[in-house]
């Protein structure tokens, strides 16, 4: 699958950083504002799919390998499960929020009516893990479909 015209490439290149930064903001502020790991990951994967469609899968295949995407997805899944199992170790039950109320990172409790990013306990860690998993998973589906279709076009 070849790339599109220069106009589409330029506009995609301009709007790509804004989409990715908005998605990462939604992931990082998942415990304060609407959204979370899945929503932000879907937004970032949308931006990556825009770049893939605008520049073509041949160009994208030189930048990233499908093996790396499946590795990132496995890292996200293992991180999510690991945080959940640490709940058994430190808090007694599965999915226990053992960080909240301590002096660790993300350990604070917000005051009434105030928003602080250093709160939430295990929620931001789980948001990051699920966000990584969703970015790699959803973009991996689109990417491998584009690769297979470009191979099919070449052979035909």
């Amino acid at each position: 699958m070849n790339g599109m015209t220069k106009i589409v490439k330029t506009i995609a290149g301009i709007s790509f950083p804004f989409i990715v930064i908005y998605g990462l903001y939604v992931i990082a502020h998942g415990h304060l504002t609407p959204g979370g790991g899945f929503q932000g990951g879907a937004v970032v994967a949308s931006g990556l799919a825009l770049i893939l469609v605008a520049y073509g899968s041949k160009w994208a295949a030189t930048k990233i390998k499908e093996h790396d995407l499946s590795l990132l997805e496995s890292v996200g899944a293992i991180g999510f499960i690991t945080v959940a199992f640490f709940g058994i170790l430190f808090g007694g039950v599965f999915f226990s929020n053992f960080i909240v109320g301590t002096d660790l990172l993300f350990g604070g409790i917000p005051l009434a009516g105030a928003a602080d990013i250093n709160t939430g306990g295990t929620l931001p860690l789980m948001n990051f893990a699920v966000g990584l998993k969703v970015i790699a998973g959803l973009f991996g589906i689109v990417f491998i479909m584009a690769l297979a279709i470009s191979k099919k076009e070449e052979s035909a």
Partner: peptide, 24 residues
């Protein structure tokens, strides 16, 4: 929450997957 997920998955990624399937 649901609006962000629907806009990202429904309006962008589903369309990309459908268009790739039509191309194939």
């Amino acid at each position: 929450d649901v609006a962000i997920a629907e806009a990202g998955v429904g309006a962008c990624l589903t369309t990309a997957i459908l268009i790739l399937a039509i191309k194939g």
